[in-house]
């Protein structure tokens, strides 16, 4: 079976005027179906760039990226949007819920862009809220929910399209310790149910919840035997 994510020699160079910065250099990695992986590294390490490329929010300058068997390295804006819609679910540090929509309408949003009919969207949105244990909060607006609950709504929104990969970017960065535990338990739970999860974090404790840690440093992936050193620097 193909890995969900396959990066081969991926590099990203940002050019500003005459200055060019290699944010990523020759990254090769693969993530299998059902894995729970943490990507970690200090700020400026290229971790965010890696996340943007994994999330199809940006395309690599060089190299090959296969997501769910499909080459997405050189797609245009429209196709990238479609890939994000079909194969990816995002959970952000800032939750990024739309304040004027109720929880289920927020969860439904990706399905609106997939062009599903309203009744099917509603059924699937309510089902996703059920999976994150917020069925009884479906009609509350984000402002009426706690931070932890808001992040669970965001997780439900990431789940609702049945994506190949859930990409969580510092999902606990804005949460207190109780809510952090809550959300991490939820991710564990989703992992147990077979979801593929990539968790981007700079927090060592949070990274420890994953099965595998990919450490990024200076735009490259640090070899496994370098992990101890990395751990010390985090």
């Amino acid at each position: 079976m193909n890995p969900v994510i396959q990066l081969i020699g991926v590099g990203k160079t940002y050019t500003t005027g005459s200055l060019s910065v290699d944010a990523l250099r020759g990254v090769t990695l693969s993530i299998e179906q059902g894995e729970f992986v943490a990507v970690t590294g200090p700020s400026g390490s290229g971790k965010s760039t890696l996340m943007h490329i994994l999330g199809c929010l940006d395309v690599p300058t060089v190299g090959l990226y296969r997501l769910a068997g499909e080459d997405v390295s050189s797609l245009g804006d429209d196709q990238l949007a479609e890939v994000r819609n079909k194969h990816l679910g995002f959970v952000f540090q800032q939750f990024n819920l739309l304040a004027f929509l109720s929880a289920w309408r927020n969860v439904e949003l990706p399905l609106v862009y997939s062009g599903l009919p309203p009744h099917e969207r509603r059924t699937r949105a309510l089902d996703a809220l059920e999976q994150v244990g917020l069925a009884d909060r479906a009609h509350h607006r984000p402002g009426e929910l706690s931070g932890g609950q808001q992040q669970r709504v965001a997780v439900a929104r990431a789940l609702v399209t049945e994506p190949a990969l859930i990409l969580a970017d510092e999902p606990t960065g804005n949460l207190d310790s109780a809510a952090t535990a809550d959300v991490l338990d939820l991710l564990d739970d989703l992992h147990d149910r077979g979801r593929t999860i990539v968790l981007i974090t700079h927090e060592h404790d949070v990274a420890q919840r994953a099965e595998r840690i990919i450490a990024v440093h200076d735009g490259t992936i640090v070899p496994a035997d370098g992990l101890a050193v990395m751990g010390a620097s985090i």
Binding site: D78, R84, L98, R157, T161
Partner: peptide, 16 residues
């Protein structure tokens, strides 16, 4: 701008 970013991240095309 954040709403636009979010909508794009979850699959809105430029024309949407």
């Amino acid at each position: 701008i954040r709403e636009i970013g979010l909508r794009k991240a979850i699959g809105a095309r430029p024309r949407h």
